[in-house]
């Protein structure tokens, strides 16, 4: 069940790095003088400045799990973020994460596993090839993106730590550094941010531990240096800047369900039929679509039903939202 290859999704057509351009920058540049564009390298000054310090990654492309939908612009992915550790406004993480130091970084592996302890990030990801996975991202706030993540299937990493038969869940924890993360100085959420998956969800080949996007290391605002990506769940499940992964026997607490249990559950699977108590989840606004593009329908499990629906057979998704 876990290793079946999804039919129907074609290998993605990869946009070369030189074409990672931003629509709005394009328009602006066109307004200033379109000729320059044709001659240019395609990497605008603004973008190279924003991502210039981030190391390029050696990435294996062409995953059959990737979507061939058009990718959201790099600038939008890195300037429109929910990352309350840096502030509540979506522009805050990009503006206020400059002091954050994602290196050196270590991750504690704990709980029901044969190999536990504190490991350097390089030791955790080093043995694995970094794959590109172009995934849809659906936020619980009814907007969406298509992001070319770079990472390692979480299951491949988990296996190395040899979880025991008592490991039924995997719990994750974000770093707490109020001096570098201004949002943590305000008590809006109880930090550290915590998240969790069932073991089957964690081992699913779609589930990714990401270290980069668009072929470069993750920017701070996107959860540097290590974050989870679970494409069939609402974005808040994909916890950022992970410092601890533990294997547990019981369902671990998760930040948003602790904060507002009526509105956010443990599973948080994308589901157009189960509305948020305050707004509809039937449609989503694609970021980068512009003012006049209508919302598009949200798909069950964010379009990954074929791969993941079997994980939830017999589960009442209305109760387990």
């Amino acid at each position: 069940m876990l290793i079946n290859k999804p039919p129907g999704i074609r290998p993605s057509e990869i946009t070369p790095e030189s074409v990672f351009r931003n629509r709005r920058q394009l328009l602006r540049a066109a307004g200033l003088g379109g000729a320059g564009l044709l001659l240019g390298t395609g990497c605008s000054a603004e973008e190279s400045e924003a991502s210039g310090a981030l190391k390029s990654l050696d990435v294996v492309k062409g995953s059959s799990f990737s979507t061939d939908e058009p990718m959201t612009d790099y600038e939008d992915i890195t300037s429109y973020n929910n990352f309350y550790e840096f502030g509540l406004d979506k522009s805050d993480p990009a503006r206020l994460s400059g002091d954050f130091k994602p290196r050196p970084w270590s991750v504690e592996i704990a709980g029901e596993a044969a190999k536990t302890g504190v490991f350097d990030l390089d030791d955790i990801i080093g043995p694995h090839p970094i794959e590109e996975r172009i995934y849809r991202l659906r936020c619980v706030e009814a907007w969406s993106m298509v992001v070319p993540w770079n990472g390692i299937p979480l299951g491949d990493i988990i296996k190395r730590f040899e979880p025991t038969s008592r490991a039924k869940y995997v719990a994750f924890e974000t770093v707490v550094r109020p001096s570098e993360m201004p949002g943590q100085r305000r008590g809006v959420l109880d930090f550290p941010y915590v998240e969790g998956l069932t073991m089957a969800e964690a081992m699913h080949p779609l589930t990714l531990l990401a270290v980069g996007l668009y072929g470069r290391e993750l920017p701070n605002q996107n959860g540097a240096p290590l974050r989870l990506v679970v494409p069939w769940k609402y974005g808040f499940k994909s916890i950022k800047s992970i410092v601890k992964i533990s294997f547990t026997e019981t369902e671990p607490p998760t930040t948003w369900s602790l904060s507002a249990p009526r509105e956010y559950g443990f599973y948080a699977n994308v589901n157009p039929e189960v509305d948020h108590p305050r707004w509809s989840q039937a449609k989503e606004r694609a970021i980068g679509g512009g003012v006049f593009s209508p919302k598009k329908p949200t798909l069950m499990f964010n379009g990954y039903a074929e791969q993941v629906a079997s994980l939830y057979e017999g589960l009442d998704l209305r109760k387990n939202f």
């Binding site: 709005r24 979506k90 606004r285």
Partner: peptide
């Protein structure tokens, strides 16, 4: 801003408006 002067309306212009 909608017509590109100064800050534009951001990644989600409809929400900004």
């Amino acid at each position: 801003r909608a017509f590109g002067f100064g800050d534009d309306l951001g990644p989600n212009p409809v929400e900004t408006l």
